[in-house]
Design a protein around this nucleic acid. Structure first.
Lengths: 157, 157
DNA sequence: CTAAATCATTGAAAAAGTCAATTGTCGTTG
DNA sequence: CAACGACAATTGACTTTTTCAATGATTTAG
């Protein structure tokens, strides 16, 4: 789990926040992401998932019927990694590969009922666990941050 | 009968941004960080650095005289990774390990003159790149985002 | 003085990322 | 139709990154 023996009087790492990195948006982004990712992975571990596999499962549980190629592009992962992730989820009976009758090269990855249930449990866990991470912000701040992040993340408006 | 949602071979991942992930701050954070990281690494590659090694170099070039242990905690990296990073920088003559006379177990990592020069060049490169990356935001938005990110990154106020 | 704890280091194992080659299928063109 | 190039999924090889346990040197506590 997380060990946080960091606070203490003079704050060991407090003094590093005065260096050039602390004003660096990319560095802050990296650190915030690292914390968020660690928390999410810890929460998802209870359901036997990680952020990667959860992302695939969540997309498979949507109505969008993603192909593996689309998952690869959207998640910015190598196609071979999608194979491994889908294999793992399929082994647990959470997703299935549906051949597309219109193009038999492609597999559509769809969540099973068990997969949807697992996805909901995982979603509950991850939102619960990250409430603690993001509730230092007010609702307004969070909404604003989300909109800013959408632009940085390259979401088409 | 036949749904025509599948032939979006051009707009590709557009439709996935309507799924639950798009409202997920952690997911947006991961995506934004991934883009920012890739850009920063590309910029730093011109100086033979990556974000990891640049972070170590920048901290070594500060006045804070970090120990390897402190670098490990602040950068959230395993101590063994710090060893490898410092090895690499030391091999190029950019940092040196100074034994602490008060505690001979610890090494203080300090930048050499050449290291400081390299750090400045790298800093120029990375800020130049980030100007391009973050200029989709106004100055106000960027300042606001930085302040929000500082809180998310766990910077003590 | 002894015992426990800490720092840097090493090495090994697991996970993640990259890349080229293969197979089956599609679309097009001669 | 048959052949060709393009594409989706898969496999395998390979490199890098991450994670963890063990060690030697040193400090701190008892």
């Amino acid at each position: 789990m997380d060990h946080m023996a960091v606070q203490t009087r003079d704050g060991t790492d407090q003094r590093f926040w005065n260096t050039s990195v602390s004003g660096d948006l990319a560095f802050l982004l990296a650190r915030a992401n690292s914390l968020s990712l660690a928390g999410a992975n810890a929460a998802l571990a209870q359901e036997g998932l990680k952020v990667r596999s959860y992302s695939v499962l969540a997309l498979a549980a949507s109505d969008e019927r993603p192909t593996q190629r689309e998952l690869s592009e959207f998640l910015r992962l190598d196609p071979s990694q999608i194979v491994a992730l889908v294999d793992g989820l399929q082994r647990r009976g959470w997703v299935s590969r549906e051949p597309d009758p219109q193009d038999r090269r492609v597999n559509v990855v769809v969540a099973t009922d068990a997969g949807r249930a697992a996805c909901e449990r995982a979603h509950a866990r991850v939102t619960e666990h990250q409430r603690g991470h993001f509730d230092m912000l007010t609702d307004d701040e969070r909404a604003l941050l989300t909109s800013l992040m959408r632009r940085l993340a390259g979401v088409a408006e």
